[in-house]
Design a protein around this nucleic acid. Structure first.
Lengths: 116, 116
DNA sequence: CAGTATCCTTGGGGATACTG
DNA sequence: CAGTATCCCCAAGGATACTG
């Protein structure tokens, strides 16, 4: 496992896993409950079939999520869930989300002169 | 402040701030101590002058870091440091770094059949 | 020393159509 | 339903040269 600088920076590895236009939202959804492909697609307005499949497959490659395919029916039912590794990321995801929320309100307040 | 999906996802805001090829390493350095431009450049092999300036200016725009310029000398001395907002990110950066370290060793062990 | 300016390449992401 | 395959575009990033 190498990072993109040749240099060992675990932080960068974590950032890289989370980088991708739809990965944040996908992970927020999966943190709350397992999701079907179409259900994700439906609740991610603007995300195309192709992009959803891409982002999901990258998260699978990184072993953050996994999929279950139920072939007893046609058409097939697929659902995605967090792996153990993915679940170990949840606390960090939550603190990043909380920090982002705080960050946004801080900038908003500064912008509207509401600080001090 | 909007995220790139139009949807409100603070996690994505945080990820976006950290996304950029050299930002992780820069932040790791600045977490330990303030740094001069050239000092950063010297310790980031592969990073060009241009890229370093770009990544630094983005972090400044996002109000994560700030710079001091000492014009009492020619040539000018510039140094970069974390802002209050930046310092509030440090605990998260550290937990992301720790998680990344664990992630890498987990994958390495699985790869070499050292698990179980 | 600490940057810009210019030019070029690459890959992330969008639109659309097809398939098991 | 849950994806691929194709084609296209733009922004991130690299190489190199110039400057206050």
């Amino acid at each position: 496992m190498q990072t993109r600088h040749g240099e060992n920076c675990p932080l960068d590895a974590t950032v890289t896993i989370l980088s991708g236009k739809w990965k944040s939202i996908i992970l927020c959804r999966l943190t709350k409950q397992d999701q079907r492909f179409t259900e994700l697609l439906r609740t991610l307005p603007g995300c195309t079939r192709r992009m959803l499949a891409l982002q999901l497959s990258q998260l699978i490659t990184d072993q953050i999520i996994a999929k279950d395919v139920d072939t007893t029916f046609v058409p097939t039912k697929t659902s995605y869930h967090l792996t153990d590794l993915g679940r170990s990321l949840v606390p960090i995801i939550q603190s990043m989300d909380a920090w982002g929320r705080q960050y946004i309100t801080t900038l908003d307040n500064a912008e509207h002169g509401t600080s001090i």
